[in-house]
Design a protein around this nucleic acid. Sequence first.
DNA 1: TCAGCTAGCTTACGTCGTAAGCCTTGATCA
DNA 2: TGATCAAGGCTTACGACGTAAGCTAGCTGA
Lengths: 239, 239
Amino acid sequence: MTKSDDPSSLRAEPERRTPLDRAQVVRAAIELIDEHGAHALSMRRLGRRLNVEAMSLYKHVDSRDTLLDGVIAAIIDELFDDPETHLRETDSWSDYLVRVAHGVRRNALAHPNVFPLVATRPPEAPWIRPPLRSLPWVESFLLSLRTHGFDADAAVYTYRAFTSFLLGHLLLEVAALGADTGPIASPESTHPSGLRLDDYPNVQELRPKLTENAAAEEFDESLDNLLNRLQDVRTHGLL
Amino acid sequence: MTKSDDPSSLRAEPERRTPLDRAQVVRAAIELIDEHGAHALSMRRLGRRLNVEAMSLYKHVDSRDTLLDGVIAAIIDELFDDPETHLRETDSWSDYLVRVAHGVRRNALAHPNVFPLVATRPPEAPWIRPPLRSLPWVESFLLSLRTHGFDADAAVYTYRAFTSFLLGHLLLEVAALGADTGPIASPESTHPSGLRLDDYPNVQELRPKLTENAAAEEFDESLDNLLNRLQDVRTHGLL
DNA sequence: TCAGCTAGCTTACGTCGTAAGCCTTGATCA
DNA sequence: TGATCAAGGCTTACGACGTAAGCTAGCTGA
C-alpha cells in the first residue's frame, strides 16, 4: 500500500513464497544478536528483518522470552551436534573433556553476544548448569564419564567443576572480546581507554601486561590443571 | 491528590523532609533488585518506592544504565570496604587470597540478584575483570601480590585466574540459589521439577546427587587447588 | 525583597511486548 | 466447481517503559 508496490520490483524482495517457521525465526534472532547484541532483539526489529510484522512472529513463537530460550537451545544444540564434542572409541576420558571444552569455547567465540545469555538465563532446573545446560548434554556428559570409570559421585563432581571452569573462563574471554554482555554496546567507548590511572601505580605499570590476550593459553593450562585434579577424584574418590 | 492524603496519617509516610540524593537512589535500586530481580528495576517503580515521580530520579542519576553502573559500583565498594578483604600484616599471600575469595562469595550470596549484573555488564575497560571490577580493586590486588613476591607476570596471571575462578563458581552458585539471573523469576516453576527424565537414565539415577548442594566445599576445594597452582607460578614463574 | 537555584512535578514522544481480531490464500472435500 | 477451513499473514490498540523538555514551589543568600 504505502510504497511497497514499486513497479520496478516485480518480485523485488524474496517475496516470501514459503511461510516462515519457528526455526527461521530463531535463526534470524541469533543473527540479530550476533550482529547487534541481545538488547537489539525486539520483536519489531526481528519482524523487519524477516519482512513481516512483529505480531506475525507470534504465530511461531509464544513470547520474546521463549524466543530467547529458543536461541539458547539452538546454540547448545549446535554444540551438541558437533561430533567433536562427543566421546569416541579411541578417547581417554581426558581426551573427551578436552574436546568438549574446546568445542564449548569455539561455540562461545562464534557467538560472543549470545554466550552471556547462555551463561545467565535461568536453566530448566537449578541443577542444570550453564553452559552445558540441556538434558541431552547432561546425560551425554555423565554417561561418557561413567563409561570411563567415574563413579556416581565423581561424575557429578566433574560436571560441576567442569561447568564452573567453562563459565568463568569463557564469560570473561567473551566479555573482553568487546561483546556487549550488558545492555549498551560500542558507541560509548568514548575514549579508547581514558581511565585516570594516576592514583593506581601498579595498574599503570602493569597495564601492558593486563591488556595482553593470553586467553587461549590460560584456558588450556587451567583446563589441564582441572584434569589433573579430576584424575585424583576419579581414582581415589572424593576427599 | 488521589488518595495520598489519608487524614488518618498526619505524616503517615516519612513525608520526605530532606531531599533525595544519589546514594539513596542507588540504595533503593539495590533493595528493589534484591527483592524482585533486575528486570523489576524500572524508573517508575523505583520512583514509587521513593515516593517520587520517575522523572525526579533524573535529578540524581543520568540514566537507567548509569544507575545500574552505580548499583554495581556500590556493591563492589561494599566489598572493598570490608576489612576482611584486604591484606594484613600477618597474612601470607594465600591467606589473603582466601579471605578475598570468601569476601566476594559472601558479597555475592548477600545480593544474589545483583551478582549477575556484576558478572556480565561491560566493565570500564576490557582488562578490568568481574567480579573484581574497579580500579581500586585491581590496584589493591596487584599490590598485595607484589608485596608477597609475585613478579609482574605472576601477579597479572593471578588476577586473571582468580577472577575466572570466582566468576565461574559464584555465578553458578547464585543461579542455583534461584536468583533470577535472567528476566523472569519464580512463578513459572510450574511443576517443582516436572522434567521428563525418562530418556535420560544417567540423569535420572544421579538426580539426587545433582541436586545436593556442596557449593561451599567445592568452592573451597577448587580455591585450594588454584592456590597450589599459583604457588608454582609464584616461585617458578610462568611456564 | 527578590533573584536564582534545587528538587520536585507534568506532559509528551517513541519504543516495547503482546492481546484481540481481521483478511487472504491455498488445500480439502462434496 | 464451489464451499469450507486453517495457516499465516496484517491492523489496531493497550499499558509500561526510558527519557526530553519545560514548569513550579520553596529555600538560600544578597
